[in-house]
Design a protein around this nucleic acid. Sequence first.
DNA 1: ACCGTGACTTAGG
DNA 2: TCCTAAGCCACGG
Length: 268
Amino acid sequence: MRQSDHEVPTRLERAAGDLIGLAADPPEDFALRVLRRVGIQREQYDTYVRLETPAGGLFVAAGPDAVTGAALDSAGLTATAFEERHRVRTHRSAIPATKPFPGVVTALRTGRARRLPIDLSGLTTAERAVLEAVRTIPPGQLRPVGWIAREAEVPATAVVGALARNPVAVLIPSHRVTHDGGAPCDADLVPGAGDALRAAEGVDLDREVELRRGGVVFLGSDTTRIYCHPTCAHARRIVPRHQVPFRTAREAGRAGYRACKSCRPVTV
DNA sequence: ACCGTGACTTAGG
DNA sequence: TCCTAAGCCACGG
């Protein structure tokens, strides 16, 4: 039997058929399959997933090579609102997906995201420097604004503003930054989120309050005459009978103590 | 004041 | 991911 012309499906009909076929598949990654089918390149859009953290759900967007944004939904942020904010900020669409960017889940579990590729190209040089400095704070540890300023080589007055505009919440651990007196900064977080993240990393919140009440900013060891930020891994090993509290770096210096080379206390 | 041991972290392979 | 080397430091001798 000879096939007549009108029985040959047109390109449009084939595409429609394909899309119907795609829609009949499970809903996972439907948008991605549609984009691929109509020939939109992967480089032209970001994808995002929603992952659980100690501070609630976290939307994490990424391009092919790097994470490009993250925001907690704790402030009532919906997926649609996240997509919109992402598009306004990056001029790229974020498409829901199921597969997180490689390494993100591990980074969230361990708190170690220093090697995770994060794209901060939309920020100013100073903002980028601040956030890169924040990224070097080890999990479970805290650093004051003055420390960030010195590490990033920016004026201290520029730090909090840059933190407030952190486009990659949690993965850039702004919750590890305190004011110089030790009180949490949490410039980009809703109340409660910072404490939840810090507690989950093993920060002793009660002890932090206690130190702050006493004005203690540094902790020294009278065996080595070295002083640290109290949450420094080395400071945490100083047994109580060797702990010497300091309220300022100058006070520690006058007592003959030098700064720890690991946590590099601010000596302003 | 100095030194050795061991715990811990990071960089690099 | 495992392994190693190196750096840093608590602690006791």
